[in-house]
Design a protein around this nucleic acid. Structure first.
Lengths: 252, 252
DNA sequence: GAGTGGTCTAGACCACCTT
DNA sequence: AGGTGGTCTAGACCACTCA
């Protein structure tokens, strides 16, 4: 027998025959569900869990990744793992901006403008706005936070013909309000695309998450009564920060 | 110098200072984007990639996990990694069932009924149907596939007062049609909740994916004109199989 | 039976956060 | 300065798929 190739350190699989990381995942999940680990709490460090449970660090991390995928914990880079706060509910049929509905849910929103530029419309974008390729567009990027935690990065395109001098406005508040009060632009119809995605460079960096973290992409096209596109918006959300809720009547 | 603790095998970080797994991820991603690896194609095995790139298997796997999180590849357990097919578009405002809109997009849908039972309504469910706790409900679970790949598991609750003998129907087709043709039940309003989730036991097992795989949960409550709940449905989707699209008018 | 991914160990060094 | 997660190596055995 080639006993030399056996790994004498290998512990047996648990009796229930489930992988160790699922057992650990469910133990930690239980502690979160019962409130023993409250939202915002920091989990024990990986090395601490390692010595408590006598398993390798890789296995510990696998359990943590699972909880992260479920949206129950998140990481602050090189600081630790934390229990996720509750997700906010987002209803795209209501024309209330981020600032409004976050406050309505008892949370504290914040917005930071990252950039406001004039860019030339690419083919796809030009088609959406009904403009010629290369036509100028406002491109606004912002980061929005809830209770101090960044939850989304958005890139908004606006037709400067409808909103001249947008760059001179204070864009750290509600764009909705600016568009309606300063420019008389009110959306009457929204077209929304939504799909799970991975947050990658540079969005991941801006949100302070690891590249590849699961996220949700919401693309919103807002139309005015005359059919012009008022806003074309890409929102990259942390997947644990949002629940989408829509109430709608059925078309044929 | 404690040279004995140095790892002589450790290769240098690449010049661009990005982790190796991101480099590999982007190389594979490029091959997928350009069509060199077409949807449905199997990727080289992990050990093959390992020897091609001279990196450890764990690093290879990290790159694959990233592409999986982006929805660009998926795994068939112990068979290999495959390039994901295109996602189907789902428009909850259209009262067309799964079978219909999948066909409209040139794909082949299939449905398997997993179970049909009568269960006692729990508190939350009873509230939704406006029934007493413990009242009987039909509970239907099904698995649905596109082009032979399972993409979602759903659990549907139906009030037996509105649809008696539902269990005797052929449930492998469109429930929508059965409800409207046999029972005269047509939904006029949908309430929809949507959020990224992780697919865990037992859903993961039914879809043949690893527990913890990212997914999308859609909860749909359908109301008839008289306000009664026609259907209360939980759909657990593979996250790479669906794009949600909604077109809606703005409420105040 | 050969090959695949799934799980697990036991280290190492690094960049960065925290105090 | 000490601790944290981030990255990476180099193995091992296992359960399962596929031909």
């Amino acid at each position: 027998m080639p006993a030399a190739t056996l790994d004498p350190m290998r512990p047996p699989r648990p009796d229930d025959d489930r992988p160790h990381y699922l057992t650990l995942r469910d133990q930690l999940g239980e502690a979160i569900a019962t409130g023993r680990l409250a939202p915002g709490t920091r989990l024990p460090s990986e090395r601490q869990l390692q010595s408590e449970t006598a398993t390798a660090r890789g296995t510990i991390r696998e359990a943590l990744f699972q909880l992260e995928a479920e949206g129950r914990i998140y990481r602050r880079d090189r600081s630790g793992w934390y229990v996720s706060p509750a997700a906010v509910t987002y209803d795209p049929t209501r024309w209330a901006g981020f600032m409004t509905y976050v406050v309505e849910q008892g949370r504290t929103p914040a917005t930071q403008t990252l950039s406001i530029d004039s860019v030339a419309a690419a083919a796809a974008t030009a088609g959406i706005f009904g403009l010629a390729i290369g036509a100028p567009l406002h491109e606004l990027t912002r980061r929005r936070s809830i209770d101090g935690r960044p939850v989304l990065v958005e890139r908004i395109m606006v037709d400067p013909a409808l909103a001249p001098d947008l760059a001179t406005q204070d864009l750290d508040g509600s764009l909705t309000h600016i568009l309606s009060r300063h420019y008389g632009l009110a959306a009457v119809r929204n077209h929304i695309d939504m799909r799970p995605c991975a947050l990658t460079t540079p969005v991941a960096g801006t949100l302070g998450v690891k590249s590849g973290t699961p996220g949700l992409l919401i693309v919103r096209t807002s139309f005015a009564a005359n059919g012009r596109v008022v806003e074309y918006d890409h929102e990259y959300w942390r997947h644990d920060a949002i629940k989408v809720q829509v109430d709608l009547t059925i078309r044929a």
